[in-house]
Nucleic acid binder design. Structure first.
Lengths: 151, 151
DNA sequence: ATGTCTGCAAAGTTTTTGCAGTAAT
DNA sequence: ATTACTGCAAAAACTTTGCAGACAT
């Protein structure tokens, strides 16, 4: 569902950017883990397995490009790292975001697909004039496994 | 609506912590700006106006205490600072969170009160077993002033 | 009196930047 | 042949920590 290799190459060329092994590998690392939320350091470690000479700075620079191309999303799970995950649309038309369920006990992060926020967004536009483009929702609580132990 | 000075003093004592001028001033700075979202450095600057000898480290340490006492909330507006705002309940029973509307043009952050997420939380509990305790919602878009210029 | 708290400076983390060499077009 | 890109190391930026003196109880 995410961008494929050829689309990415074309996007780079369209922007006058060069297609490099490092850039392909960084995108691939993110595409390989659609459900994890990778920090720059983790991406770096993953790419290093295939391409040991890559530098962490290149990973950070590539992440900037991927963000500008809207191929990945930034999320902050308040653990001291900024994290990234591959977007689930190719061309940026749809926005079908998911929410993050963060377990306050075990720290595990699950995703939840939902469109319920459309209603909220409409209400906001109606009452405040603010035009919503995108959103990020984090829900803190206890996951199914941890929930039993607490309640 | 936020905690008052005496409640705070009592909370500190109950925890075996000492009541100091610095701690009172940090809380007061946050209480004085319920609608801004203060970074540690900003709190530091505000307190320094009244009490120039305070150190930034003390501000950080006090923030930790206030978070543990649930007197303030942490928010991350992706601008490189962790920000804090005073909670809008005294004793932590109710949770009446607001959402943050972040203008992608001028960067201004407005708040929006709403309980629409109760429905989403219930849906999540029903379908996933995850028990939601709290949430943080960030909505990105264009504020009323900037909206006209873009659309 | 005692135990905590403070300010300062140093250290720790994550992320960014400068530069000379390397690779892509 | 250009022009952009990379890796390294240094710098930057935010936050935490160690310590000796100061303050609250």
């Amino acid at each position: 569902m995410a961008v494929d290799r050829e689309q990415f190459k074309q996007l780079l060329k369209d922007k006058g950017l060069k297609v490099t092994t490092q850039r392909l590998l960084v995108l691939e690392a993110l595409a390989a883990c659609p459900d994890r939320h990778l920090a720059a350091e983790e991406i770096y470690e993953m790419v290093k397995a295939d391409y040991p000479e890559i530098g962490l700075a290149t990973v950070y620079r590539t992440i900037q490009i991927l963000l500008e191309l809207h191929l990945i999303d930034r999320i902050n799970l308040d653990d001291g790292f900024v994290r990234y995950e591959i977007g689930n649309v190719g061309m940026g038309t749809a926005k079908h975001h998911h929410h993050h369920l963060i377990c306050m006990n075990c720290g595990k992060v699950n995703s939840f697909e939902d469109d319920l926020l459309e209603e909220l967004e409409e209400k906001i536009t109606r009452t405040t004039g603010f035009h919503v483009i995108d959103h990020e929702v984090k829900l803190y609580g206890y996951c199914a496994e941890c929930g039993g132990k607490i309640d």
